[in-house]
Computed example of a mutant assay.
Amino acid sequence: MRPIRLLAPAAVGAAALALSACATTPYTGPVEVTRFVAPDPAGLGAGPLVVYFPDEVSNAVARTAMKTAVERELAALGYSIVAQEGPGIQVAAVRTSRTGIAAIEDGRGPVSVGVGGQTGSFGSGLGMGVGINLGGGRESPSVLTDLSVRITRADGETLWEGRSQIATGVKSPYSQIDASARTLAAGLFKDFPGGNGETVTINVKKLQGN
């Protein structure tokens, strides 16, 4: 029977480094936010407001997570969340989607947002970019999750509109619906209402705890 040979400490360390090099770090991009503010945003950030989805969201879990996250942020700003529209009640229209990065790279153009008489009137040509910066051994981003909210007065006049998005890899904890909803909503309403036509990127670590 051959004697068992023990690896020297240096060899053990080298083996550990080799294994760690093979591990893939989950990819989490920053939250990218673009916002527009009406010239006369009287009443913005206060009073009763109802949150609704103008488009069908087939994923009930995603719909609930996004609605909860948006309502939480709006309530923290000073709004009183109500269940139905009515006189003097502002409306927050929420849209959300998740798209594969491959589909974007294949030619899906950016979606612009704006406030006023026509889409993009406050920011024509300002599209949302994808802030992807990969280092060695990092997981590739696989999906782009976005959240957009438009706040209007009861008469339909738009007061504010914004959109936030985040690119994540499959292994990122921010790919989970609840985490992405909280993070996107927190980024969207950070420093509300923000500058008209501005686009900012926010590290997710700065949004933890929101």
Rank of each mutant, 00 (worst) to 15 (best):
M1I: 06
M1W: 09
R2T: 13
R2W: 10
I4G: 01
R5W: 05
L7M: 11
A8E: 10
A8D: 14
A10T: 03
A10R: 08
A15G: 09
A16C: 07
L19C: 06
A23S: 14
T24M: 11
P26L: 02
P26D: 04
T28Y: 05
P30M: 01
V33C: 10
T34A: 13
F36K: 04
A38N: 04
D40G: 08
A42Y: 07
A42W: 01
G43S: 10
G45E: 07
G47K: 09
L49D: 09
Y52L: 15
F53C: 08
D55K: 13
D55N: 02
V61S: 11
V61R: 12
A62L: 10
R63W: 03
A65E: 06
K67Y: 08
A69L: 06
A69G: 00
E71M: 02
R72E: 05
R72F: 13
R72W: 12
A75C: 06
A76I: 05
I81S: 04
I81T: 12
V82K: 07
A83L: 11
A83N: 15
Q84M: 15
Q84Y: 10
I89C: 03
Q90R: 12
V91I: 14
V91D: 08
G100K: 14
G100H: 10
G100S: 06
I101Q: 12
A102W: 11
A103E: 13
I104N: 07
G109P: 05
P110A: 14
G116D: 01
G116V: 04
T119R: 05
S121Q: 06
F122T: 15
F122P: 09
G123N: 12
G123V: 01
G123D: 07
G125E: 04
L126Q: 12
G127H: 07
G131P: 15
I132H: 02
N133M: 12
G135S: 10
G135T: 04
G135I: 08
G136H: 06
R138V: 15
P141D: 00
P141F: 01
V143S: 03
R150F: 06
R150K: 08
T152N: 11
R153E: 10
A154F: 12
T158K: 05
L159W: 00
E161H: 14
G162V: 10
Q165E: 02
Q165A: 12
I166N: 00
T168Q: 09
T168L: 04
T168G: 04
G169P: 03
V170M: 08
V170C: 04
S172R: 07
P173I: 03
Y174M: 11
S175F: 01
I177C: 00
A179V: 06
S180Q: 03
T183H: 01
L184E: 00
F189Y: 07
K190T: 09
K190L: 15
P193A: 01
G194C: 13
N196Y: 01
N196E: 05
V200M: 11
T201F: 06
K205Q: 06
K205C: 05
G209F: 01
G209M: 07
N210C: 04
N210T: 13
